[in-house]
Simulated assay, not measured.
Amino acid sequence: MGCDGGTIPKRHELVKGPKKVEKVDKDAELVAQWNYCSLSQEILRRPIVACELGRLYNKDAVIEFLLDKSSGKALKAASHIKSIKNVTELKLSDNPAWEGDRGNTKGDKHDDLQRARFICPVVGLEMNGRHRFCFLRCCGCVFSERALKEIKADVCHTCGAAFQEDDVIVLNGTKEDVEVLKRCMEERRLRAKLGKKTKKSKATETVSKPDVPEDSAGPSTIKTRKPEEIVPDSREKKPSAAPKSAATDGSASGKAGKPPCGAPKRTIADSEESEAYKSLFTTHSSAKRSKEESAHWVTHTSYCF
């Protein structure tokens, strides 16, 4: 059982037990959340955007993800982003004490992980993950949660834009914060869909039922009347039209020699007109000639005597 040098192995060196769960370094996790893009895992660089769940992204990475949706690359970190309207560009305040990579170019200097690139413009806290930060969805300004609690106002401290409680979104919050933000996001999108449907229905109603002015109401009702409604009116007007026709026929018969309605028809020969007037018509005796007197090329209605 002994090894070289007389050593005796112990039980944990010979028997393989269950692997220990590796614990995630909290400092490294905070650095990854606040300094790297959640989609491309690259260092955050302006322009920086945030989604409705409070995650930070590079705007270029979000645009590439939206353009490359056809390839089927649906990442968990950005599966809820359907368009560029679902993200807000952040207005961040630079930290004057942050030197970046310039301070440790030789590797002989300690890197302070608590030092952050951005700070709160109201209180001055550094945005390194130790303090809770949030942004306003209406304008994109970023503040610490302490600043919003200490200085209570309905207006943004930087740009003066009015906001509501629904517009405040926590950056890189806990699981409970993410669940609350997810519920609010779903409700907001549902309200937007319902608003679009109501607008479309109103637009279709206005197109299908245009407003009819009062002046044009009379002719339109006459045109759209049914035939059944028009027939009684015509019947009612017939008796009133009969005397007029009789009067006009009487006057015409008196002038032109026409018999009234219902009287037997008379020829011009039987009329009381003069012989000169009657000779103008072919029914007069002077217009009748025998076959011998008329030529073969002359019609019976010819007036050439």
Rank of each mutant, 00 (worst) to 15 (best):
S93R: 09
T221Q: 10
K73G: 11
L44I: 03
A192W: 02
E272V: 06
D270Y: 10
Y57D: 00
V142N: 06
G140E: 03
A203R: 07
S79P: 06
F118Y: 11
N35Q: 12
T204F: 10
C159P: 01
E52R: 14
P96I: 00
C3I: 11
A256D: 13
R102S: 11
L66R: 02
A50R: 04
R183C: 10
S253I: 00
F65E: 09
C261K: 12
K288R: 08
I268V: 09
K238W: 13
G254Y: 07
P96N: 03
E228G: 09
F163S: 02
A61E: 06
I222R: 07
A241H: 04
H300T: 12
S245G: 06
T267D: 15
A246Q: 10
P227R: 00
K278F: 06
S220V: 14
E150M: 06
G129M: 02
C156P: 00
S234R: 14
A161R: 07
S253V: 00
R188L: 06
E273G: 11
F118R: 06
K199Y: 03
A78K: 02
P18K: 04
D233P: 10
K291C: 13
T198R: 09
V155W: 05
V168I: 02
S201N: 14
F118K: 08
P232M: 01
E89P: 00
E29H: 10
I151H: 14
E228T: 07
L125T: 08
L90D: 03
A61D: 07
K91V: 09
A162K: 10
G250Q: 08
K197F: 12
G124R: 03
L125K: 08
I84P: 08
Q114P: 07
K255Y: 14
G17E: 09
L67P: 08
V207A: 15
I84H: 10
R55G: 08
H110D: 14
A217V: 15
C134M: 00
H157S: 08
N58L: 00
G218W: 06
L136Y: 02
V62E: 05
G140R: 05
R130Q: 13
T158W: 05
V170M: 05
L14Q: 01
K175R: 14
L136K: 04
K200S: 15
C37M: 01
P243F: 04
F65S: 14
A162W: 11
K152M: 04
T7G: 10
H80T: 06
E228K: 02
K19I: 11
P219I: 08
S201D: 13
S70D: 15
K258F: 15
I169C: 05
M1Y: 12
T301R: 12
S279D: 07
I43F: 12
L53P: 02
A263Q: 10
E272A: 08
K76C: 12
P264Y: 07
A97K: 08
I151P: 07
P18I: 01
Q33D: 12
P96F: 02
F281R: 00
A28R: 13
G195L: 11
L14F: 04
S302R: 03
S70E: 14
D111H: 04
N128E: 00
F65W: 12
N104A: 01
S253Y: 01
E145Q: 11
P239C: 08
Q41E: 15
C37K: 00
P243E: 01
R46W: 13
V49P: 02
E165N: 13
T204D: 14
A116N: 03
S253A: 09
K10P: 06
G6V: 04
A217F: 11
S271I: 04
V123T: 15
R137I: 02
D233N: 11
C304Q: 11
